[in-house]
């Protein structure tokens, strides 16, 4: 369960988050939509403890994130995966090494166990044949899948997805959406997905929230939102949206 309550965050004199509240029940995918620069990534960063809110409460599994110390944050991050826009792979490591990185740095697994785990997640995202390639030699969609494998390799309970389909063509996007839905259904992962894409919201979202002026302006299931006729719902989920 991820819960934000009245979270505020200001950068300089710009109020980015102005009291956002949302909650993601266990095993659900929550889709967070909103215009560029509205603070979606900042919201995700609050949840994983890279950014601390000015006020308000951020809870993951009942534990308050902003007051965690270093060790608690590390423990939290082991239970949480984060998929970055474009994958954010380390480009001097191979695909397999990238995926192994979070395991090598902290877990006490033997190297053959690490290899097995890496192979498993790579197979799940359909990248088992590119394990030895360099991230510079693979396409955007493949990078994203490797990024997802890296997020999943620690067997997290939660995954945060930051624009998992930005800049991808509809076919590749569709594959990613299926993977996100599969991660929820097969692994029981609780997901928070930031996206602009209507297809993504429809395909993976159990609940949709739309950011407006630093808080959730509209929230509900896809069906509720589309039938509401609200201008925000029209802008992000209407037939004109993509």
């Amino acid at each position: 369960m991820i819960e934000l309550n009245d979270v505020k965050k200001q950068f300089g004199d710009r109020q980015i988050l102005a009291g956002i509240s949302l909650s993601v029940p266990r095993g659900m995918n929550y889709v967070l939509m909103g215009p560029s620069g509205s603070g979606k990534s900042v919201t995700l960063r609050n949840i994983i403890g890279i950014v601390r809110p000015d006020s308000g409460s951020v809870r993951v599994g009942g534990m308050e994130v902003p007051t965690m110390d270093r060790d608690q944050l590390m423990a939290l991050r082991r239970r949480m995966g984060y998929l970055f826009q474009n994958g954010a792979l380390i480009n001097w490591l191979s695909v397999a090494q990238n995926v192994a990185l979070p395991l090598q740095e902290h877990s006490k697994l033997s190297s053959s166990e690490v290899d097995d785990r890496v192979q498993d997640v790579l197979r799940m995202v359909g990248m088992q044949n590119s394990a030895e390639q360099s991230p510079t030699d693979i396409s955007g969609g493949m990078k994203l899948r490797v990024g997802l494998a890296r997020a999943l390799v620690t067997q997290p309970e939660y995954v945060l997805y930051d624009e998992p389909n930005a800049g991808l063509d509809p076919i590749i996007s569709h594959q990613i959406h299926e993977l996100i839905a599969e991660v929820r259904d097969r692994l029981g992962v609780t997901g928070l997905i930031v996206t602009h894409s209507r297809a993504c919201a429809v395909h993976c979202g159990d609940r949709i929230g739309i950011l407006e002026n630093g808080r959730i302006g509209l929230e509900g299931s896809v069906a509720e939102l589309t039938s509401s006729g609200h201008p925000l719902a029209k802008a992000f989920l209407g037939s004109g949206a993509d």
Binding site: I48, I50, M74, F84, L89, P102, E105
Partner: peptide
């Protein structure tokens, strides 16, 4: 990528 490292502890 730097943030990604932090997130992976």
């Amino acid at each position: 990528e730097v943030t990604a490292l932090e997130v992976m502890s």
